[in-house]
Simulated scan of single mutants.
Amino acid sequence: MFGEMKTFFDTYAEHRRNHRPSSYYSYLEKTSNFHGYDDLRWLQQGADTREKKEVLYGYLEKHELNDPQYKRFYSMYEELGEDLGYIKKEEYVSIPKSLILDYMKEMVEDDDSDWYRANFYKHSLNGKEGTSR
Results as ranks from 00 to 15, higher is better:
Lys6Ile: 05
Lys6Val: 05
Phe8Lys: 12
Phe8Ala: 07
Phe9Cys: 00
Phe9Gly: 04
Asp10Asn: 14
Tyr12Gln: 15
Tyr12Phe: 10
Tyr12Met: 14
Arg16Tyr: 03
Arg16Asn: 12
Arg17Trp: 01
Asn18His: 07
Asn18Phe: 06
Asn18Ala: 13
His19Tyr: 05
His19Gly: 00
Ser22Lys: 08
Tyr24Gly: 10
Tyr25Arg: 09
Tyr27Gln: 15
Leu28Thr: 06
Ser32Pro: 05
Phe34Asp: 11
Phe34Asn: 13
His35Asn: 13
Gly36Tyr: 14
Leu40Ile: 05
Arg41Gln: 10
Trp42Pro: 08
Leu43Arg: 01
Arg50Trp: 02
Glu51Thr: 11
Lys52Gly: 03
Lys52Cys: 01
Val55Gly: 01
Tyr57Asn: 09
Pro68Arg: 11
Pro68Asn: 14
Gln69Lys: 15
Lys71His: 08
Arg72Trp: 08
Arg72Thr: 02
Phe73Ala: 06
Tyr74Lys: 09
Gly85Met: 04
Gly85Ala: 08
Glu90Trp: 00
Glu90His: 03
Val93Cys: 10
Ser94Tyr: 09
Ile95Asn: 08
Lys97Thr: 06
Leu99Arg: 11
Ile100Val: 15
Met107Leu: 12
Val108Asp: 14
Glu109Met: 08
Ser113Gln: 09
Ser113Met: 09
Ser113Pro: 08
Asp114Lys: 10
Tyr116Phe: 14
Ala118Met: 04
His123Trp: 03
Asn126Phe: 15
Lys128Ser: 02
